[in-house]
Simulated scan of single mutants.
Amino acid sequence: MTTWITICDTCKRTGWEETGMQKTDGKALAEMIEVAAAGADGVKTRRVSCTMGCDRACNITVQASGKINYSLGTFEATTDDAVAIVEYAAKHAASENGQVPYREWPQGVKGHFVSRHQPLPE
């Protein structure tokens, strides 16, 4: 089953305007996640404009049909964060119900979880 990483490409971290960046933090993170996810088993990515979590930018969700889904935030546009997100998503994809034991979480996602969403009823 495919696990989707949904990335908010409009996220801007505090002070973004002063950095002179030509693209948003979310767009930069999206690009890094897409590279890290290339070839990852059971993981696909998509971008959306605004997940309404601006206070916790940068935001992503990890989702799969019939599984528990997660919202995560406060990421930086770094390769380390992108790799950790993809590693977690691959574990989510491999799990039966979307639950990944804490001891298996990549260090880079710990402390970034915002909410957990139960699967929709059939």
Rank of each mutant, 00 (worst) to 15 (best):
76 E>A: 15
98 G>K: 05
81 D>T: 06
30 A>V: 05
121 P>D: 00
26 G>P: 00
64 A>M: 08
109 V>A: 09
85 I>F: 09
86 V>R: 02
19 T>S: 14
62 V>Y: 01
93 A>Q: 13
3 T>A: 15
121 P>K: 00
88 Y>G: 02
111 G>V: 07
92 H>L: 08
7 I>V: 13
84 A>N: 06
46 R>A: 15
103 R>D: 10
68 I>C: 02
64 A>L: 08
13 R>C: 12
92 H>G: 08
12 K>E: 14
65 S>K: 15
51 T>E: 11
2 T>P: 14
30 A>I: 01
76 E>R: 12
34 E>L: 00
21 M>L: 09
23 K>L: 04
72 L>M: 14
67 K>S: 03
119 P>R: 12
64 A>Y: 10
110 K>I: 09
61 T>V: 07
3 T>L: 12
47 R>T: 13
27 K>I: 00
83 V>M: 13
8 C>E: 00
36 A>Y: 00
48 V>M: 09
39 G>S: 04
100 V>N: 08
70 Y>I: 02
21 M>F: 10
11 C>F: 04
59 N>E: 11
42 G>T: 11
29 L>M: 13
103 R>H: 08
81 D>C: 13
121 P>R: 00
83 V>Y: 08
37 A>M: 08
73 G>A: 11
58 C>N: 14
82 A>Y: 03
57 A>D: 09
122 E>K: 06
90 A>S: 15
27 K>T: 03
61 T>L: 07
57 A>Q: 07
37 A>W: 02
82 A>R: 09
68 I>L: 09
21 M>T: 03
72 L>V: 02
3 T>K: 05
91 K>C: 09
63 Q>A: 13
78 T>P: 10
114 V>W: 15
77 A>V: 08
108 G>E: 05
85 I>P: 03
95 S>L: 07
45 T>H: 11
15 G>Q: 10
11 C>M: 10
2 T>H: 14
84 A>Q: 03
69 N>F: 04
80 D>Y: 08
90 A>F: 05
6 T>G: 06
54 C>W: 05
93 A>T: 10
111 G>C: 12
41 D>Y: 11
1 M>V: 09
47 R>P: 05
31 E>Y: 00
101 P>D: 03
96 E>Q: 12
38 A>K: 13
26 G>V: 00
33 I>R: 01
82 A>C: 12
39 G>Q: 05
8 C>W: 02
114 V>S: 15
58 C>Y: 03
17 E>W: 12
66 G>F: 06
117 H>K: 11
115 S>T: 08
15 G>P: 11
76 E>S: 14
10 T>L: 06
31 E>I: 00
64 A>R: 14
57 A>V: 11
117 H>W: 06
85 I>H: 07
53 G>L: 15
44 K>F: 05
18 E>M: 11
69 N>S: 14
97 N>C: 03
23 K>H: 12
120 L>V: 10
18 E>K: 15
115 S>P: 00
54 C>F: 11
91 K>V: 05
57 A>P: 05
14 T>M: 07
16 W>K: 06
38 A>P: 04
31 E>F: 01
86 V>C: 05
95 S>M: 07
91 K>S: 09
